[in-house]
Design a protein around this nucleic acid. Structure first.
Length: 318
DNA sequence: AACCCGGGGGA
DNA sequence: TCCCCAGGGTT
């Protein structure tokens, strides 16, 4: 690592401790809590998630509770957040955790990625924030900071991930993750505030032209869109409506148009009746389903004390 | 690679 | 109206 890189790393860590946003999902490092937070945060702003996060965890405090819930119950705690299929995948994820992992969130990347709704980013976000592994969670914010300040040139996704992992200060991935997120969200935004940036002196970004290429997620007009009708159906489901014809009336659609969306929702588990195991996990030979002692379900208890210790350590550093 | 998913805030 | 957002899954 070059001297410049080391300076950036040190400055960013220091800045992170003094400018860290206080967010509900930063109060502890329970893997299940991190999983829920990261799922809610996919393509959804922090300000919106804060209004849902704690209520959701109060209602579904462990994978065991979530796995036993019904789809409409989960939707009731989700509608308004958007991307409602995330809620169904999270529920399916909890079922896999219970059936195959004793209700614990795995700490192995490949295992994490095999879970419904967990991709490369979320897997790394859990490893870095819940298990303190030296891996980098490269989201859209982190990508800007990394490419602009550290790399200084276009780079493929795979290469950037390798580079990003190499920049994680050993054993400090939690605070490193928060520091990068906070800088990306507060300073190194799409339209950056370089005049307020602590990294400006060593940054490779000249203010224009170096942004990583991110393909636009164009979304067609919402009014009258399939999205809108889907949303109407999901809201009705969350309110307990089950009758198919009544659901159709909530949209005002003709039978064919409605059926198209209805079938899609059904396939995605919005009715909770199809307990189809996700692809790749279809082996029903659950090993130790009855072997649990039944004492500490849903709490990765070995993490609880660690979370408290870390919190104390970091609050002293300020 | 392109497309799908919700919704709201802001320019 | 268009862009943006702690992405993931399917085709």
């Amino acid at each position: 690592m070059t001297d410049r890189t080391l300076r950036l790393q040190e400055i960013l860590l220091e800045w992170g401790t003094t400018h860290r946003r206080q967010l509900p999902w930063r109060e502890n490092r329970h893997p299940y809590h991190i999983l829920v937070a990261e799922t809610m945060l996919t393509q959804t702003q922090v300000g919106r998630v804060t209004r849902y996060y704690q209520d959701f965890l109060s209602r579904f405090p462990t994978p065991f509770v979530l796995a036993e819930s019904s789809a409409p119950e989960v939707l009731e705690s989700w509608v308004g957040l958007g991307y409602n299929r995330r809620a169904l995948r999270l529920r399916q994820c909890a079922q896999v955790l219970v059936e195959e992992h004793d209700g614990l969130v795995p700490d192995v990347q490949e295992t994490l990625r095999s879970l419904p709704g967990v991709g490369a980013y979320t897997a790394n976000a859990i490893l870095a924030q819940a298990f303190n592994k030296d891996v980098s969670a490269v989201d859209t914010n982190a990508r800007r900071v990394l490419v602009r300040a550290f790399v200084g040139q276009p780079m493929t996704q795979v290469a950037l991930q390798i580079r990003a992992d190499s920049l994680v200060p050993h054993g400090r991935s939690w605070e490193w993750t928060q520091a990068i997120f906070d800088l990306g969200a507060l300073i190194c935004r799409v339209k950056p505030s370089c005049d307020r940036c602590p990294l400006a002196a060593d940054c490779l970004f000249d203010g224009h032209g170096l942004d990583p290429y991110i393909p636009p997620r164009r979304q067609s007009t919402f009014a009258g869109s399939r999205r809108q009708y889907r949303g109407q159906i999901v809201r009705a489901l969350a309110q307990g409506v089950q009758d198919k014809e009544e659901l159709r009336r909530h949209t005002g659609l003709d039978a064919d148009s409605f059926n198209s969306i209805y079938q899609e929702l059904k396939n995605e588990g919005f009715f909770g009746t199809t307990e189809t195991a996700p692809p790749g996990a279809s082996n029903p030979s659950t090993s130790t389903l009855g072997g649990c002692t039944g004492t500490s379900h849903g709490t990765q208890h070995h993490m609880d004390s660690a979370a408290i210790n870390y919190t104390e350590v970091y609050s002293v550093e300020d």
